[in-house]
Simulated assay, not measured.
Amino acid sequence: MKAIFQKYWFFMGIAVVVLAAFAFPGWGTFVREWKILKIGIFLAFMLTGLKLETRSIGEQFKNVRVLAASLGSSLVLFPLVTAILVRALFGSVPDFVIGATLIAVAPVTVASGTVMTGIALGNVPLSLFICILGNCLAIFTIPFSLEFLLGTSQGIDLPVMHMLINLVLTVLLPTLIGQGLRMNQTIRNQVVVFKKQCSIFSQCIVLLIIFNAVSSSTEKLVGVGGMLVYVFCFMIGLHVLMLCLNYMISRALHLDRSSTAAFTIHTSQKTLTITYVVWAGYFMTLAPMGLIPAIAYHLTQMILDTLVAHKFRNAALRATRVETMRVATL
């Protein structure tokens, strides 16, 4: 039982926080008023900066094609594809249109994409490269992307510059603080010792985000009922589509097996934390159910990408065995 809990505690936690959100929706107000989640997100990004090992990605900067392709896929292609599809299928439900657009313009994940790449025996430095550059650039593209995609289709007038400053202070600043603290050898050693605890803390912040999102929209969620199933199916289909598109892009770039795994997996992922920062700051009142598509996408990528990573891993191991046998017969 203990082994099962340790392996699936996060998914069990999701069930608990969703039930708690419906049973005690007022707790969400308490979390917001006391800025508990805001402080937790700041600390989570500072821990991200502490954990990021940037020395290993230097060589990746030479590959301009991969840089352009990863940024173009994540920050241009993904939002455009999502905007077209979600308007066609959920045009009558603005909350879901806004929510899907929010997760689409967000950058790639920080931790899970790299972890999945490692499982796939992929190019981890390339994964970190995609992660760091994507997150830094997305902070500046998100306000303008939302203005373009939602300002034209939903008639929403966004405070672009205010949003940009807020993202810099909430996301970029704590990450840079973490990188600065990482320069201290003692602190860097402690991060290695408490790496697992840091990861658990970040996942707990995600659980708190899910709780806050559900508790703020319980009445509306009950009202839409079965449509939630369609939202989850849509986000699953969207993630599969992006995995396929990014795999084809990586093949067109003639990337090797390990780099293909990194590109396909990490470029297809999105971060829930930054999506929440934007939703909570500018869309919570306008679209109380707006974070539901983002939550659905987050769960989808955690489950599907684990399967994809193992598929890449098995293919790599088979190729290694074949090469070993070939060398042995020479």
Score class of each variant (00 low, 15 high):
1 M>S: 09
2 K>P: 01
2 K>L: 13
3 A>R: 12
7 K>L: 13
8 Y>L: 11
8 Y>T: 11
10 F>I: 01
12 M>T: 08
15 A>N: 09
16 V>K: 02
19 L>A: 14
21 A>E: 01
22 F>A: 10
25 P>Q: 10
29 T>M: 12
30 F>K: 07
32 R>L: 12
34 W>I: 00
35 K>H: 13
36 I>C: 15
37 L>Q: 10
37 L>M: 07
38 K>M: 09
41 I>H: 05
41 I>T: 02
42 F>A: 12
45 F>W: 01
48 T>A: 11
49 G>F: 08
49 G>V: 08
49 G>H: 04
49 G>R: 06
55 R>I: 06
55 R>Y: 09
57 I>Y: 02
59 E>K: 14
59 E>H: 09
64 V>I: 15
68 A>M: 13
75 L>T: 05
76 V>T: 10
80 L>I: 15
81 V>L: 13
82 T>P: 03
87 R>L: 15
89 L>H: 04
93 V>T: 15
93 V>K: 11
97 V>R: 05
99 G>Y: 04
101 T>R: 04
101 T>Y: 00
103 I>M: 10
104 A>P: 06
105 V>C: 05
107 P>W: 05
110 V>L: 15
111 A>L: 10
112 S>H: 04
113 G>H: 04
115 V>D: 05
116 M>R: 07
119 I>M: 12
122 G>F: 03
136 C>F: 15
142 I>H: 01
142 I>R: 01
144 F>Y: 14
145 S>Y: 01
147 E>I: 02
151 G>T: 00
155 G>Y: 04
161 M>Q: 14
168 V>I: 15
168 V>R: 05
169 L>S: 10
172 L>T: 06
172 L>S: 06
178 G>A: 01
181 L>K: 00
181 L>G: 06
182 R>H: 06
193 V>P: 01
195 K>I: 01
196 K>D: 13
197 Q>H: 15
199 S>Q: 13
206 V>D: 02
207 L>R: 01
207 L>W: 08
211 F>W: 07
211 F>T: 06
215 S>G: 00
217 S>C: 08
219 E>Y: 06
221 L>C: 03
225 G>I: 09
227 M>H: 12
228 L>F: 11
232 F>K: 04
234 F>S: 04
235 M>S: 03
235 M>I: 07
237 G>H: 09
246 N>L: 05
254 H>C: 07
254 H>K: 12
257 R>V: 12
257 R>H: 15
257 R>S: 14
259 S>I: 02
263 F>A: 12
263 F>C: 10
263 F>M: 12
264 T>M: 11
265 I>Q: 07
267 T>M: 03
267 T>G: 05
268 S>Y: 04
269 Q>A: 14
270 K>A: 05
273 T>N: 09
279 W>L: 02
281 G>M: 09
282 Y>W: 13
288 P>G: 03
290 G>F: 07
292 I>A: 00
293 P>S: 09
296 A>Q: 00
297 Y>R: 08
298 H>M: 08
299 L>F: 10
302 M>I: 14
312 F>R: 02
317 L>K: 14
320 T>M: 12
321 R>V: 13
327 V>T: 13
327 V>Q: 13
330 L>E: 13
